Amino acid sequence: MEHEFWHARWENQEIGFHEGTVNRYLHEHWPEMVHHGNETVLVPLCGKSKDLWWLHDRGHPVIGIELSAIACKDFFEEAGAKARVLPAQPFTRYIHDDELQLWCGDFFQLVPDDVRHVRLVYDRAALIALPPAMRRDYAEHLEAILPDQAAILLITLDYDPGEMKGPPFNVSPDEVHALFGDEFEIDHILTNPLEKDHPFAKRKGLNNGSESVFRLRRKA
């Protein structure tokens, strides 16, 4: 999707994809990802998610990648936190106490040296934000830039595309394996149906949606 689409969504505050609380699957399954507790975490297409504060509060250096400057500014303002702003190309960096950074720019401009210290990736809203062709590009770019030691906690949404038009887009478990299976061992941790009274399902009129959680580790 073009940059203008996302800039317009943030300018018009059409951000129904934003969760106002910490994601339940992050809370439940993050301990399974952590070895030392101080691993650097990459959060692609992070928006102004409160999940970044949750990770930071648990001792992780966090790098969030976000296209919208509005989202980056709101992230810190809504938390009453200060951030140093370092304009540069290809990313303007918003830095809070050196351990929590939002990089404002295009995820596809990341290079391996940018993420050389990253050991964990948290993707709740990146893969499902992208249409099919860009999902392939996204997976290949992650594979190209991430260190071999990095693991990914991935959360996806699956539904009948006849019931709603993304984003967020439906991504099936089969597609996750097709996108990442050549490079990563994939552990499909769980799938939970979206109950009809789930706020998102109710708002979008979904009858058979589900959420899945995956743990991805690079193959030896």
Score class of each variant (00 low, 15 high):
7 H>M: 14
11 E>S: 14
11 E>Q: 14
19 E>K: 08
21 T>S: 15
22 V>L: 14
26 L>N: 09
34 V>E: 07
35 H>R: 05
38 N>A: 12
40 T>Y: 14
41 V>R: 03
44 P>S: 14
45 L>A: 09
52 L>R: 05
57 D>N: 09
60 H>V: 08
61 P>I: 03
62 V>C: 03
65 I>N: 00
69 A>V: 15
75 F>I: 03
78 E>H: 08
78 E>G: 07
86 L>E: 14
88 A>F: 08
89 Q>F: 07
92 T>N: 04
97 D>Q: 08
97 D>R: 08
98 D>L: 11
99 E>Y: 05
100 L>K: 01
100 L>H: 03
104 C>F: 07
110 L>H: 07
111 V>Q: 13
111 V>R: 13
128 I>L: 11
128 I>C: 00
131 P>H: 10
132 P>A: 15
133 A>P: 04
133 A>N: 12
134 M>N: 06
139 A>Y: 00
145 I>V: 15
145 I>K: 11
147 P>M: 04
150 A>L: 01
151 A>V: 12
163 E>C: 00
163 E>R: 10
169 F>P: 00
169 F>K: 02
169 F>D: 03
170 N>S: 09
171 V>F: 04
173 P>M: 01
178 A>I: 02
179 L>C: 00
180 F>C: 00
184 F>E: 00
188 H>W: 09
188 H>S: 07
190 L>F: 09
192 N>P: 07
193 P>Q: 06
193 P>M: 11
196 K>W: 15
200 F>E: 15
201 A>K: 02
201 A>R: 05
202 K>E: 10
202 K>I: 06
203 R>T: 13
204 K>A: 12
205 G>A: 11
216 L>M: 11
219 K>C: 07
219 K>A: 03
